[in-house]
Design a protein around this nucleic acid. Sequence first.
DNA 1: AACGCCTGTGACACTTCCGTGACACTTCCC
DNA 2: GGGAAGTGTCACGGAAGTGTCACAGGCGTT
Lengths: 223, 223
Amino acid sequence: MAKVLLIEDDASLGGTLAERLERDGLTVAWARTLRDARAHLEAGPWDLAIVDVMLPDGSGFGLAREMRGTSATPIMFMTALNSAENRLEGFEIGAEEYLPKPFHLREFMLRVRHVLGRQRPQGAIHAGGCEINLGALSVDRPGHPRVFLQARDCQVLKLLIDSAPRAVPRSEILDRVWGENRFPTPRAIDNAIVRLRQALGDDEGHVIRSIRGIGYQWAAEAR
Amino acid sequence: MAKVLLIEDDASLGGTLAERLERDGLTVAWARTLRDARAHLEAGPWDLAIVDVMLPDGSGFGLAREMRGTSATPIMFMTALNSAENRLEGFEIGAEEYLPKPFHLREFMLRVRHVLGRQRPQGAIHAGGCEINLGALSVDRPGHPRVFLQARDCQVLKLLIDSAPRAVPRSEILDRVWGENRFPTPRAIDNAIVRLRQALGDDEGHVIRSIRGIGYQWAAEAR
DNA sequence: AACGCCTGTGACACTTCCGTGACACTTCCC
DNA sequence: GGGAAGTGTCACGGAAGTGTCACAGGCGTT
C-alpha cells in the first residue's frame, strides 16, 4: 500500500485529488501549508510527494530542496507555472514529474501511477550483505551501526543503481548530479565514491567498480 | 549504446537535438516526415522514439498509435500543443514523457536520460558463444569467469561491431579511436586486438578477422 | 557569533593502463 | 624458395588516472 503526501492549499482541488487517490487504494495525507508538510515529512517515509509550488507560506521548490537533503522520496510538482525555466528548475531539483495546471484528473492519476509503478521495490536494495534504503538515505549492515548517506552521495548512488549494469561516465555523473554549469575538481566525484564505499563496506571496489578512463559502475548484482 | 529515433520536421531544432543526443553517446536517426519515420521503425528496434506531434504529412499521435500495436518502444512526445486535453491524449496512447515546446535543451536531455535510464535490458551482443555487453564493458562466456574489457579496447570493439560487415582499415581505427593527431606505433592496434581476442576466446581469428594490408573485420555473424 | 555539518579542494601516493620496442611468425609476390 | 612486408606476441616502464587524506569555505543552526 503506497503512501502519498499531497501538499496543496486549494481546498476544493486538494479534496478532489485526495479522494481520487484514496479511491485507488493509496494512503493519502493532505497538507495545506509548508509547515504542515514538514511535520508530515518528519513523521514517516513516503512513496511519493505531490507538491503544489505556490503555497501560502512559501514555495514548493524550497521545500523540495530541503527534502532532497533528507530523503530520496520521489517528487511530483503540480503548478500553474509552466515556462521552460520553471520546469527546468523543477527537474534540476530532482523532480520525477512536473504536471502543469490545469489538468484532467485522469492525467493526474496516470502520472501518479507512472511514478509509483516504476519505483524500485520500496523497502531496500540488498548488495553485498548491505541493506540500502534510498528513501531514508540509510545503510544497514549486520554487525555495524546504521550509517546515513549524505544527499550528494546518495544522488550518485541512485544514478549508478538506476543505470546498472551500464558503466556511467564521470562526465555524465557530473552533469546529472552536479549540473552542467558547475565544474568541480575530479576529486569531488572520487570523494563521493570513497564515502559510499565506506558506507557499503566495499573495500575492494566490488560493489561500486571503478572503470579506469570511463567512470563507475554498480556491480553488486554481478557477484 | 542506446538507439534513438528522432522525428521532427523543423530542420534547425532537429539538428540541434540530434547533435546534442549524439554528444551524449547515443545513436540517433532523424526522420522529418511520418513516411520517413515508418521506414526507420521497420528497419530496427529502437530504445526511444522522440515524436513531434505536428508533422507535414500527419499527426505524431497517429504514428504513436500504430507503434503501440507493433512494439513497446518508449515514446516521448514533443509539441507546442499543451492543453490538458492534448496531454491526456498523449498519455492515453501510452507515452512515457510529454515535453511541451518551448523547452530548454537541458530539460530535454534530462527527460531523455530519465526514460533511457529506467530501461532495464541493455542489449547484449551474442557472438561465438560470448555475451558482450558494451555498456558494462564486460564479456561473459559459459565456463569462464566474467572478463572486463579496457576502455580503449572497448572503443575498438565497438567500432568494429558498428561497422560490420565492412572491414575497417587500420588508418580508420587510428583516426576514430586514437584521434587524428596521435600517431602511435602500429603495435598499439595489434595489442588491442590481441587483448580483445583473448577476452572473446577467439584463438583463431574467426570472430575478429585480420585482413592483411587492410585492417580488421567483425566476422562473428558470418559463422 | 560561534558552532557543526556537508562538500569541494589540493597535495601526494599509488595503481593500472596501454604504447613501445624487440623478435618470431605468416603471407604474399617475384 | 626466398625475401620483404605485414602481423602476432610478449615484457617492460612511463604517465595518466584514481584513492586517500587533511583542511577550508559555506550554509544553516544554536
